[in-house]
């Protein structure tokens, strides 16, 4: 507020001062000789410096009059534009900083999640490995048990089959031996031996009293 009052007051003072200087300068330019500066101007002009103090003051006064206008129509918008540009840049920087912070946060969050996922995956893999190892051990034990049972069963079956074959063989040997005995006895049997056999049997028949 104070800046606005200051800025609104300064142009009027400048314009008034400029008008006074412009008028004073014009008057001086028109009455240079009368005011005692004609000799100085002529001296300078003789030295190659054509300087009219009155016109110079008048020009300065015009400049002081035009300066607020220039300031209002050119410098002020330029300052505003620069200020707006600076604000935009600051906002952009702020947004960029915010984005960067957000990105950092997201990145750290992502890193944390990634680490958590990796840890979880590692844990799951380890768990699966442990489970697979347990399953392998269980299957190995079961297979070993089954193999032992099969071996025992096969051994028992082989032994039983061996005994069966042995008995069949011995039975066959007995049959062969007895068949041979029958043949030998039959070939050596004659009437006298047969008669004795019959008599012996008749005498051996037990009679129940």
């Amino acid at each position: 507020m104070s800046n606005e009052q200051k800025s609104s007051g300064s142009p009027i003072v400048g314009i008034i001062l400029g008008a006074v200087i412009m008028v004073g300068g014009t008057y001086l330019s028109l009455n240079a000789k009368a005011l005692g500066v004609g000799g100085i101007q002529e001296t300078l002009e003789g030295q190659g410096i054509p300087l009219d103090f009155g016109k110079t003051l008048g020009t300065i006064g015009v400049f002081l009059i035009l300066f607020p206008v220039i300031k209002s129509f050119f410098i002020k918008p330029l300052q505003d534009a620069i200020q707006e540009r600076n604000s935009d840049l600051e906002r952009t920087f702020t947004e960029a900083e915010n984005l960067r912070t957000e990105m950092e946060r997201m990145r750290s969050d992502y890193d944390r999640r990634l680490a958590e996922s990796e840890a979880s995956a590692r844990e799951q893999i380890q768990s699966q490995i442990r489970e697979a190892q347990n399953l392998r051990s269980s299957l190995m034990a079961e297979a070993a048990t089954r193999a032992d049972a099969l071996v025992q069963q096969a051994t028992a079956e082989i032994e039983a089959e061996k005994q069966k074959v042995l008995v069949e063989l011995r039975t066959h040997v007995v049959d062969l031996a007895l068949a041979a005995a029958e043949k030998v006895v039959g070939e050596n049997m004659d009437s006298e031996r047969n008669r004795r056999l019959v008599d012996d049997y008749i005498n051996s028949v037990e009679v129940v009293a």
Partner: peptide, 18 residues
């Protein structure tokens, strides 16, 4: 082969070599 065998009803008195 030899000897004698007596069979009656469901009984057998077997005195044969066979």
């Amino acid at each position: 082969i030899g000897g004698v065998k007596v069979a009656y009803d469901n009984y057998v008195l077997d005195g044969t070599v066979r």
